[in-house]
Design a protein around this nucleic acid. Structure first.
Lengths: 341, 341
DNA sequence: CTGAAAGCGCTTACAG
DNA sequence: CTGAAAGCGCTTACAG
């Protein structure tokens, strides 16, 4: 059927040398292997003339490197994750790596599946925003010493490389910002998830309130609830707690649901109800009023991830460190959904 | 260094058969090859016991299939594209394919690079939202008969499989919707790009106005202009044309820039200025007022893409058709940024 | 019913 | 300075 591909074997034949020589020249080992200039030119010319393209599968099989980085996040369509992926893609391609990019859907099973696929594909490095219940598998990766960076969340007991944002400080400051604006009954709307990033956010909220002697009020929304259900729950919560005058949402999409709820109830922001979202959103500045948020530094996160990953990739034989957690400060984006005292 | 991987060779040894037999059993060819039930069990047991994981590089090298689909779009972080990618990822993984997902940045050079990388990686199928100036390369792909689907835009002269939305009808209806709402001076804000999808949108706009005998007014914004510049240009345009009472934006991000411009100028939507965006946005329903848009059917697009791709992948030897363009109807999302007569 | 062996397209230690 | 050859981990036509 298909015409056989043009390979280094053909170049070797055309130039009249061995495939070894061709391989050396094509991989920039000419000087190291002291290939004559003349031969180099002939080989390069033949390669170009015939439009030679290396077969990465073959290359990968013999070197043991696929030049592929596997990255898995909750949903590849999530704006926060995809802005990070965009940066990672960029940095990876600069070094000749490709990105396999997948959604865990926050499901343990789906993640295990993906992990298996990644292994089979022989990805060279892993970037993972881990879902709950995946400790065991992560531990396995760690044991097999593959380059790995966890981000957004991590498993506190595992000696891994992690990149996170100071979740506690973010919520602490958000809460203080509410207080400074004159809000007196600040509720936290969060998920019923026990993952560190969430418990940290709750801690920040609680700490700020405690310092002021204000009473906390936390409403947990089920993790897997569909959007309409979330909105319904938040509506009910607002109606049941008329004295609440500010809502801190622990994730972006909770904030979106919350804003819908507030719109349904026709409450004024921030007059009747102040709003802050943990995690910024591309369009929060276009809302009326614009929505104050705690932004995660996308660029900083991407850079930290790649920094940790390259160090492992470059240094497979002498890993300097076996664990490290980079904690980045979040950024309070002050906009107009909080009262100003 | 690293322990050698456990391979089919090891299974073969452990069970005392040849690698051929192991390969047959592991690939479900037991009955076809009439492998004894006993041997099957032994092989499967050994594979499981030792946690055997196939090496896709080796598999790919010998079968010529990588089980990877390459998908390139303008930016992987774009919400429209990433919702589609999300669907595609899902459908692909159901059939054991992985997704290599990349940004063309709408640059011809970047795209050529990616195309080279995809070839080298031996991707089995291509899904591309082509940037301008890439006809020649697409033609090359077509000639080499690799499974390929173009979407969002395509090259009209090329016999390829394409999935697009009826751009002309979308803008036609949007314009008629403005007219029905009582708008009388409708301007089109678009890009200075000659790509089909854009010229089609312009045609729809012009046709609707012509039918009503209303004068057209088109402002082109440079394609590569950064966001602030776009906003500035739109502000200038609005100020220079005080009689304009409606703005049709030919892309999502132009609409965003436009809304910013309108907010800066403190014009009322839709009282002073009606707004419709081509391409919906996740949060347009949360804006005040909510923004009317022409939505592209993400699910329908993804399904059509995969349908065309599977047909080519399944049917490499007898391709039924060599070209086909699926045109999907866009959906007018009537919200509150247009007057109602 | 099963195996020996060639082949996929590269790389690389080794020899000369 | 260059080549012969083994090896990466799999598949598959062919033979028996």
């Amino acid at each position: 059927m298909k015409k056989k591909k043009f390979s280094i074997y053909d170049i070797a034949e055309e130039v009249g040398v061995s495939t070894a020589t061709v391989s050396y020249v094509l991989n920039g080992k000419s000087t190291e292997k002291r290939i004559s200039l003349d031969l180099q030119k002939q080989i390069l010319r033949s390669a170009k003339k015939n439009g030679y393209q290396p077969n990465m599968l073959a290359k990968g099989l013999s070197t043991g490197k696929s030049k592929i980085i596997g990255m898995m996040v909750e949903y590849i369509s999530d704006p926060f994750f995809s802005s990070i992926a965009r940066q990672i893609e960029d940095k990876a391609s600069q070094r000749g790596y490709k990105l396999l990019y997948s959604s865990t859907e926050n499901s343990t099973d789906k993640t295990k599946d993906l992990l298996r696929v990644y292994r089979e594909t022989q990805v060279d490095g892993y970037i993972i925003a881990p879902p709950p219940g995946i400790e065991k598998e992560i531990r396995g990766l760690l044991r097999s010493k593959v380059p790995l960076v966890l981000f957004d969340r991590f498993c506190p007991d595992l000696p891994s490389f992690n990149v996170i944002v100071d979740n506690r400080a973010g919520c602490y400051e958000a809460t203080r910002h509410f207080i400074a604006g004159g809000h007196r009954n600040i509720a936290l709307v969060t998920l019923d998830s026990g993952q560190v990033q969430m418990t940290e956010r709750t801690k920040g909220y609680l700490q700020a309130l405690e310092e002021e002697g204000q009473p906390p009020l936390i409403r947990q929304v089920p993790f897997e609830a569909p959007e309409e259900e979330r909105v319904r729950r938040i509506i009910a919560f607002i109606e049941d707690h008329p004295h609440v005058d500010a809502l801190l949402f622990s994730t972006n999409y909770l904030a979106i649901s919350g804003i819908k709820a507030i719109q349904v109830l026709r409450r004024a922001i921030p007059g009747e109800l102040g709003v802050i979202s943990f995690d910024d959103n591309t369009h929060f500045d276009l809302f009326t009023p614009s929505i104050t948020s705690v932004a995660q530094p996308v660029l900083g996160i991407s850079e930290a991830i790649m920094d940790l990953l390259w160090r492992q990739l470059d240094d497979q034989l002498f890993p300097r460190a076996k664990k490290e957690t980079v904690v980045l400060p979040p950024l309070l984006m002050e906009r107009n959904s909080v009262r100003s005292a």
